[in-house]
Amino acid sequence: HTVDVQGVTYHFDNPEEARKFAEEMAKRLGLQVHVKDGRYKVE
């Protein structure tokens, strides 16, 4: 499970961890979480 944050890619084994990380980063950076091709993108 992959999370892209402003061009940096993070990998997680656990989909729940990936989702939480994406939401946390989006909140911290004031950005949105998009799901695209099964990847989380924070932009």
Rank of each mutant, 00 (worst) to 15 (best):
H34D: 05
K27E: 10
R39H: 15
E17W: 07
R19L: 11
H11G: 07
M25S: 08
T9Y: 10
H34L: 09
D13E: 13
Q6F: 12
H34S: 14
G7L: 04
D37T: 03
V35G: 08
G38M: 04
H11E: 10
M25P: 00
G30N: 07
H1L: 08
E43S: 09
K27R: 14
Q6C: 15
E24H: 11
T2N: 09
R19G: 06
E43Q: 07
Y10N: 02
K36H: 14
H34G: 05
E17Q: 11
D4F: 08
A22Q: 00
V33A: 04
E17A: 12
E43K: 05
K27H: 10
V8N: 09
E16G: 10
K27M: 13
G30A: 04
V5W: 03
K27V: 09
R39T: 13
R39I: 15
K36W: 06
F12N: 00
R19M: 08
E17H: 10
Q6H: 08
D37A: 05
Y10H: 06
Q32F: 11
D4A: 06
V3W: 00
V42Y: 02
K36Y: 07
E17Y: 08
V35W: 15
R39V: 15
V3R: 00
T2W: 15
Y10K: 03
F12D: 00
D4Q: 08
R19W: 09
E16R: 09
E16Q: 11
K20G: 09
G30E: 04
L31C: 08
N14W: 09
G38A: 03
R28S: 08
L29I: 03
A22W: 00
D37Y: 04
E23A: 08
V42E: 03
V5I: 07
N14Q: 10
T9P: 08
N14K: 12
G30D: 05
L29W: 06
K41N: 11
V35L: 13
K20M: 13
A26E: 01
M25Y: 06
T2Y: 15
A18V: 02
R28Q: 10
Q32Y: 10
A26H: 01
K41P: 04
D4W: 13
K36E: 15
M25I: 10
G38L: 03
R39M: 15
H11W: 12
K20S: 12
L29S: 03
K36D: 13
F12T: 01
G7W: 05
H11T: 13
K27W: 10
L31A: 08
E23S: 08
R19H: 06
K41Q: 14
V3P: 00
V33T: 03
T9N: 07
T2I: 15
E16K: 09
T2G: 07
V3E: 00
A22M: 01
Q6P: 03
H34A: 08
H34C: 13
F21C: 05
E17R: 09
L31M: 14
G38N: 07
A26K: 01
Q32N: 07
L29F: 07
L29N: 03
V35R: 05
M25D: 01
A22S: 04
V3H: 00
V8C: 14
D4N: 06
G30V: 03
V8G: 05
K41G: 05
Q6A: 08
D4S: 07
E16W: 12
R39W: 09
Y10W: 09
G7D: 07
F21M: 04
E24S: 11
H34T: 15
K36A: 10
E16I: 12
V35S: 06
G38R: 05
D13T: 12
F12H: 02
H34Y: 14
P15M: 11
L29E: 02
A18W: 01
Q6I: 14
V3G: 00
Q6S: 08
L29Q: 03
A18N: 00
Y40V: 06
K41M: 15
R19A: 07
V33S: 03
L31N: 02
Q32I: 13
E24C: 15
G38K: 05
E24R: 11
K20D: 10
E24P: 00
L29K: 03
N14R: 10
G30S: 06
V35F: 15
K27F: 13
A26G: 06
Q32S: 13
Y10V: 05
V42A: 02
L31H: 04
E24G: 09
V33Y: 05
F12V: 02
T9E: 13
E17T: 12
E43F: 09
V5M: 05
V42Q: 01
K20V: 12
H1S: 12
Y40L: 10
P15D: 15
T2F: 15
R28D: 05
G38P: 02
D13K: 10
T9L: 14
A22D: 00
D13L: 10
L29M: 07
K36G: 06
Q6R: 09
E43T: 09
N14A: 11
Q32W: 07
T2Q: 13
E23K: 07
K36F: 07
K20R: 13
E23Y: 15
R39K: 15
R28T: 08
F21P: 00
Y10I: 04
E43V: 08
G38T: 04
E24L: 14
D37P: 03
P15V: 09
Y40P: 04
Y10G: 00
E23G: 07
E17N: 11
K20A: 13
E23F: 15
V3Y: 00
A18E: 00
T9H: 09
V5D: 01
Q6N: 08
E17S: 12
Y10P: 00
N14S: 12
L31Q: 04
G30W: 03
E43I: 07
V33N: 02
L31R: 03
K36M: 12
A26V: 01
R39L: 12
R39S: 14
A26S: 04
Y40R: 03
K41F: 15
A26I: 01
D4R: 06
T2E: 14
L31P: 00
A22F: 01
L29Y: 07
T9M: 13
A18H: 00
E16V: 11
V33R: 01
V35H: 08
P15C: 12
K27P: 01
V42M: 03
P15S: 13
V42P: 03
G7T: 05
V8R: 13
